[in-house]
């Protein structure tokens, strides 16, 4: 009984935290979001160099990691969302990947044929809608992302290759899913949550959120057995 009340209380606190988070927004994330919404003109013709030539070309022009302007991308686009929208965007650490790989041509494999255009372009300049009748061999944006990331992660045996390794699944609209009476009591609410999230509820019972003790980055030497605190000596005053 008490456990259930506490679970419910935990949920309320979590909700409160989320609400307060709306006030402050991470500026780089906001920028990445805005950027992901942009549509850029389609580049039809590309300069089809071999990989070595391409690398030499970038070397000649002195383009390397120091030129990376954007550190952080949201890999998503209205082009993709128009067709299917089941997952959240992938948060892609551009600069970090550039530093790790040290080779821009791993992703920027071609350049626009038009010499006046920038040496490196964003993916969505060339990869847009899938299955274009006049250009069937060009990958769509979604497939270009997936093929590029997953092939490299597999090749290097590094980085996630499954869906949820990179994406958060879109949370379905709970207005339709949650079925509660108007004056639901805390137990009914907890039971309704556990109808679908029973495994998570069980997991929660083993965490510090429930036990008020456990390994923590904020305890001395990450010690687990805390002698003092809410789990033991402190007054539970909430």
């Amino acid at each position: 009984m008490i456990r259930k009340i506490m679970v419910w209380a935990g949920v309320v606190m979590l909700g409160a935290c989320l609400c307060s988070a709306e006030v402050w927004k991470a500026p780089d994330q906001e920028k990445a979001k805005e950027r992901a919404k942009e549509l850029v003109p389609f580049v039809d013709a590309v300069k089809d160099d071999c990989k070595v030539l391409r690398r030499v070309c970038l070397l000649d022009k002195g383009i390397d990691i120091k030129d990376v302007e954007t550190t952080y991308f949201h890999l998503e686009s209205p082009i993709i969302k128009a067709r299917e929208d089941h997952y959240g965007p992938v948060r892609f650490a551009h600069k970090r990947h550039a530093a790790l790989i040290g080779d821009c041509t791993a992703c920027h494999h071609y350049r626009p044929k038009d010499e006046s255009m920038s040496e490196t372009t964003r993916c969505s300049a060339c990869h847009q809608e899938a299955f274009k009748a006049d250009n069937p061999q060009r990958l769509g944006l979604k497939a270009a992302f997936h093929q590029q990331c997953m092939a490299c992660h597999k090749q290097e045996a590094k980085g996630p290759v499954n869906c949820t390794g990179c994406h958060l699944k879109n949370v379905p609209d709970h207005k339709e899913l949650v079925k509660l009476p108007d004056d639901a009591d805390p137990f009914q609410v907890t039971a309704e949550c556990r109808r679908c999230h029973d495994a998570q509820a069980e997991d929660m019972l083993t965490t510090a959120h429930w036990l008020w003790k456990g390994p923590s980055p904020f305890t001395v030497k990450h010690r687990k057995d805390i002698q003092h605190g809410k789990g033991t000596t402190a007054l539970n005053n909430y």
Partner: peptide, 29 residues
């Protein structure tokens, strides 16, 4: 319009188009 499977495929393992177009694409690959 696209078939459901071709539309969702994350890696374009399925390419949808006119049959002679995708046949030419296959030969090209």
């Amino acid at each position: 319009g696209l078939p459901g499977c071709a539309q969702i495929c994350p890696v374009e393992a399925i390419t949808f188009g006119r049959r002679d177009t995708v046949m030419a694409l296959a030969k090209q690959r």
